Amino acid sequence: MAAAPAPQQGQWTTGLCGCFEDLSSCCCSCCCPCIPVGQVVNVLDSGNTSCCEGGLIFCVLESLTGLGCLYTCGYRKKLRMRFGLSADPCNDFLTDCCCLCCSIAQTHRELKNRNMDPSQGYIATPPTAPPVGQFMHKG
């Protein structure tokens, strides 16, 4: 399997129908989309929404109303804004409504290709320690 191209600001690393570039996210997006949706939500919400919460919200919306795309299109937009990506091939809502599995797989791949692997969950950057020798004192 060829390595994914180096991510560039403003460009998707794979196309909407690039499912064969990462078969695991493709299969999971088609067979059990609540898992990759939950993982993407967790990463894009900086850990404030758990994978289970994100996946459950999507599953309930999708199974009861068939409108899980209303939930996922917001996170597709969030991903695009973070990396300055274009709304290709059309706006987020239409992309998710017309090609939900492909869109879920693409957002999952995009994070993975940008070293933010959603299957690992949100990983916070550890706080930096104060410089040595600095301290607070009452003056």
Rank of each mutant, 00 (worst) to 15 (best):
M1W: 00
M1H: 06
A2N: 10
A3T: 12
P5K: 12
A6G: 04
A6F: 01
A6V: 05
P7F: 06
P7I: 08
P7E: 07
Q8D: 09
Q9L: 09
G10K: 08
T14M: 09
G15A: 13
C19Q: 02
F20I: 11
F20W: 14
E21N: 14
D22Q: 04
L23P: 03
S25I: 04
C26Q: 02
S29T: 05
S29N: 03
C30K: 01
P33V: 03
C34Y: 04
C34N: 01
V40G: 00
V40P: 01
V40F: 00
V41A: 11
V41C: 13
N42P: 05
L44V: 00
L44R: 10
S46L: 03
S46T: 07
G47P: 12
G47W: 08
N48L: 07
C51F: 00
E53W: 08
G54H: 04
G54W: 02
G54F: 02
I57R: 15
F58P: 01
C59S: 14
C59N: 13
V60R: 06
S63K: 01
S63I: 01
G66W: 03
C69M: 12
L70W: 11
C73I: 09
K77H: 14
K78A: 10
L79P: 11
R80K: 11
R80Q: 14
M81K: 15
F83S: 08
S86A: 15
S86T: 09
A87I: 01
P89G: 07
P89V: 01
N91Y: 03
L94I: 07
T95L: 05
D96V: 08
D96T: 14
C98D: 08
C98T: 08
C99E: 02
L100V: 01
S103P: 04
I104H: 03
A105Y: 03
H108K: 06
K112V: 05
N113L: 01
R114G: 00
R114F: 01
N115L: 00
P118H: 09
P118C: 11
S119M: 05
S119V: 12
Q120H: 08
G121I: 10
G121M: 13
A124I: 07
P126G: 06
P127Q: 03
V132T: 13
Q134I: 13
H137A: 15
G139D: 02
